[in-house]
Design a protein around this nucleic acid. Structure first.
Lengths: 208, 208
DNA sequence: GTCTATACCCTGATAGAC
DNA sequence: GTCTATCAGGGTATAGAC
């Protein structure tokens, strides 16, 4: 009897609860991404996010104590997904860099919701008081840093055009990505985001 | 007596009132631009805009019957200012085009508030339900149209690189402008927006 | 861990006096 | 043309039961 009780009340249920919590959190984050993308951070409401995750609002707030905490979790998740898809740290050479960047843009064309999330939040967060202002500022600094060295190597090897500094090239690459996303989000059928980005990338390389 | 009355109550006051109305409206629009820029359309409140224009909220709503009407007035004003500064319709050749674009970016560096207004509203309006969604979609269509013919002429004259279509070049130019603005808004001291844009524009031209 | 109930604030907008 | 007063609606967050 005592033995049985231990099995059911202590060991097994404890693991199930933990799993359920994790599953709930993931469901909430996915729902939050959707609504932050659709309406921005300010425009999205906890009630609709909770509902999409099959919860009530206080149910959601049990997992994330405030809307702000939820945003941070969403950004962390977005970062994790990005790293999976496009990790530039430890990138070998400029060829791998350009290929990866190109693949990222091609992938983005298949996930308009995530692109909208990023575009909306980045612009909203330009405001210094915005809860994710620091996050995005550091993010730009980080991703630019990651590519500068590779670009400079490429310039020294004569593969990347050297009439523009590696620092400025890094800014340009992300500026073009971001800018294309905006026009593409307005008219996905009309704007060939990946195609145009590819032509841009070719501009940065030295022709053989 | 009758004569005097006419002077004071009818003629003079009537003109003064009209002028006051116009002045009030302009004051409100300027205040609205400021707060839409700072916090986006959704984030800005009528109360704070009214206060900045030395009015109460109902006082503001007398001139613009809803927040939406106010947004439209702001967009119209922004368009008017843009046309003054950078009217590409009737642009002579690609050289004038590139010079004007360059001057626009240089000018933008002196008005971060307006750049923030544009960047914030454009991203917010990506959402199809947003009141200014149509406005910005049409705006991109229009400004791209304006430059395509000039770019094509430039290509035929051998001044503009012809390995990228004029349509795609138009998309690229505005994408680079928009994208640079974002990084510049995060770090105005670090990002040399006008300098980088100039180098980008040179990429599009055929070297002599 | 999730719910119901609710407190409390803010927002856009209206009514009506001056 | 501008105000005070006020409303209805919706927002985040908390209290407390289950």
């Amino acid at each position: 009897m005592l033995y049985n009780k231990d099995m059911t009340n202590s060991r097994t249920p404890r693991r199930t609860q933990a799993e359920r919590t994790r599953a709930s959190k993931e469901k909430i984050i996915r729902a939050a991404m959707e609504f932050f993308a659709k309406q921005g951070y300010r425009g999205a409401t906890l009630a609709e996010i909770a509902k999409a995750a099959n919860l009530t609002e206080p149910g959601l707030l049990h997992h994330f104590p405030s809307k702000n905490h939820l945003l941070m979790a969403v950004l962390a998740e977005r970062d994790r997904m990005d790293r999976e898809r496009f990790d530039l740290s430890g990138m070998d050479d400029e060829e791998a860099l350009f290929t990866s960047a190109q693949q990222l843009v091609e992938h983005n064309e298949t996930v308009p919701g995530l692109v909208k999330l990023f575009t909306t939040l980045v612009a909203e967060s330009v405001q210094e008081e915005h809860p994710s202002h620091e996050f995005f500022m550091r993010r730009y600094q980080k991703v630019r840093e990651q590519v500068i060295d590779v670009l400079r190597d490429g310039q020294e090897k004569g593969k990347v055009r050297a009439d523009i500094s590696a620092e400025d090239l890094a800014v340009m690459i992300y500026a073009m990505m971001d800018g294309l996303q905006v026009q593409w989000l307005y008219e996905p059928e009309k704007i060939d985001m990946a195609g145009i980005f590819e032509r841009f990338i070719q501009l940065l390389q030295v022709k053989l």
